[in-house]
């Protein structure tokens, strides 16, 4: 029994040596890369042809919400400004005609924001959230300070997402990746993972 196990181990080792002599290890490496060469690329042709749609949990550009009457939800409590680790929210309250506390000024310095989403969690009025927009680069950091009215117009959370859609890079006016399809093929499904 004992010697049988030793024998088979010795055969194993001899087999390994024979494999080395005929470059079995190199050959298996070559077959692997050859297989990958004819597999589907996992990268996206991002600005030119394709674009990734973020999931609804994605933390992109902030947006401010309105309630059912179309009024801004924010009550200017400044809790978001307090909790923000980067100190990038500035809220100045005022009292409107109906006697509600509302923000006169609401500015987010997205150049400093780290997109932690704490402002969204802290808000008692469910007024601020981080949406799906992720393309807002700029040549000047001053342009990245976004005011209240701009924030109200920003796109909200994604409803679909997790896919790649056809897109087109438009540099006419601004650098913009345009897309009009709501949903694309599932990118993760197509990754070869071995």
């Amino acid at each position: 029994m004992e010697s049988g196990a030793a024998m088979s181990r010795a055969f194993d080792r001899i087999g390994t040596w024979i494999g080395w002599a005929f470059f079995a290890d190199l050959a298996s490496g070559l077959t692997l890369t050859f297989g990958y060469m004819f597999s589907r690329p996992v990268t996206m042709e991002y600005p030119d042809k394709e674009k990734w749609l973020p999931y609804s949990r994605y933390r992109g550009h902030h947006f401010l919400k309105r309630d059912a009457e179309g009024e801004i939800k924010c009550v200017a409590c400044e809790l978001c400004a307090r909790i923000c680790p980067c100190d990038c929210i500035e809220v100045v309250p005022y009292e409107d005609e109906k006697g509600n506390r509302r923000p006169a000024k609401f500015e987010i310095d997205t150049a400093r924001c780290l997109f932690c989403g704490l402002c969204e969690d802290a808000c008692p009025a469910d007024a601020i959230a981080l949406g799906q927009q992720y393309e807002f680069s700029s040549f000047s950091s001053r342009d990245l300070v976004i005011g209240r009215d701009d924030l109200l117009g920003k796109p909200g959370k994604a409803t679909t997402g997790g896919g790649v859609v056809a897109a087109r890079l438009n540099t006419k006016k601004d650098v913009l990746v345009e897309t009009n399809e709501p949903q694309g093929y599932n990118w993760w499904r197509n990754i070869r993972r071995t």
Binding site: T33, Y36, M37, F38, S39, R40, P41, V42, T43, E45, D48, R192
Partner: peptide
């Protein structure tokens, strides 16, 4: 191109 496809990229495309 070969490098790209072996690494599941596309290589030069633009």
């Amino acid at each position: 191109k070969i490098a790209g496809h072996m690494q599941q990229r596309m290589g030069p495309m633009r």
